[in-house]
Design a protein around this nucleic acid. Sequence first.
DNA 1: TTAAAAATGACGGAAAACCACTAATTTTTA
DNA 2: TAAAAATTAGTGGTTTTCCGTCATTTTTAA
Lengths: 212, 212
Amino acid sequence: MGIRLAIVDDHPLVQAGLRQLLASSGNIMLEAVYASGEELMSGLERSAPDVLLLDIQLPDHNGDELARIIRQRYPQVRMLALTNVDTSAYVKKMIQAGCLGYLLKNVDRDTLVQAIETVYREEQFIAPTLKEELLQDMLEGKRKAKLAPSLTRREKEILQLIAKEYTSQEIADTLFLSPNTIENHRKQLFLKLDARNMAGLIKKAVDFGLLE
Amino acid sequence: MGIRLAIVDDHPLVQAGLRQLLASSGNIMLEAVYASGEELMSGLERSAPDVLLLDIQLPDHNGDELARIIRQRYPQVRMLALTNVDTSAYVKKMIQAGCLGYLLKNVDRDTLVQAIETVYREEQFIAPTLKEELLQDMLEGKRKAKLAPSLTRREKEILQLIAKEYTSQEIADTLFLSPNTIENHRKQLFLKLDARNMAGLIKKAVDFGLLE
DNA sequence: TTAAAAATGACGGAAAACCACTAATTTTTA
DNA sequence: TAAAAATTAGTGGTTTTCCGTCATTTTTAA
């Protein structure tokens, strides 16, 4: 009772490489190889694999949208993103689109097999080399934060309330202040965060890590 | 030419524990022990250490504000947060406030010494046990994303423009649509994201990972 | 191939935000 | 202690958002 695997990747070289890497793995059976999103979709109708190795740079689809569609129509298929793109934004995007794992194409045989077996068990697998990078990306906010404008205590307080969808009037009532005062602090916030309206204010506050 | 270290922590037990752990480390000289933010600030005026072990739960200050003040006044002091709080939000907050490292109080001697030496070299040190947790927290957005309302193409498009501080009129001009149409899509966005105003809309869009 | 969903457009009115000033008092910092 | 920053409050006016309701056409999915 092996793992039924399918691959979608438009590079013949990658296809061949994967075939070879998986040839000697008794537990994994390469069931199908597709070269495009279209091929994949019609192939899945006939037979859905346990695990799908998904290239995120296909000619006819971008990766995360394709992943979303597959997750919706074939929730039982465990997807494993396989790509050369190693920026954390892409990893996040694919994981959020429903991929259980993320591998780089320079993966070695053992890691590949381990990844397939891991996602087959519905567990997450992210290439070890990517993890450290992801961590740094997450803490990167700190660099932006260094450039973040310094807000006064009142400004911070009011910013939190704005983020909680309070109107100026409601903030005034909450803090027992004049609405005019709130408006002034708000103007100061716009100035410091270089925002034109509430949307920009909140967006930049989030970017600078000023919320919560 | 050793590393001059100071500690601020209000628990005598922790103070004692750190003393003991560091007693046999020839390279690190424990120069001062403070029990409160006030004590620390006056102590720093007399003599600033190379590395400061900073408890983030002091009676008279909350950690990130204290760290920010120290970073501003004594930028040469390398701060190392030491706490029992292991939620990623706290780690992020302290790192963003200028701490070079983050340790848990159950730290062993070797890790402690290594952390002090690492931040002394102005490099980042985060407790290894914390790293995995941080990673999961970062990818956690994916779980939220599963609950995220599904937006139509137009709604996504308009949401991006709202986040770019466009007014409805400007969005209408950009997309060659009637302002009324934009208002309707916007209404739909409010409904789907359960927001009352622009602030809430952007906040929730960010939370759901719907932006960029 | 029909429903359903999405995209488009409109009207009127109330509320809130946004803009540009001024200015007194308190707190913080140099 | 004097200067700077923060907090408070005001006036008046314009723009934008927010709310409810309705309706037509186009696209998508069962």
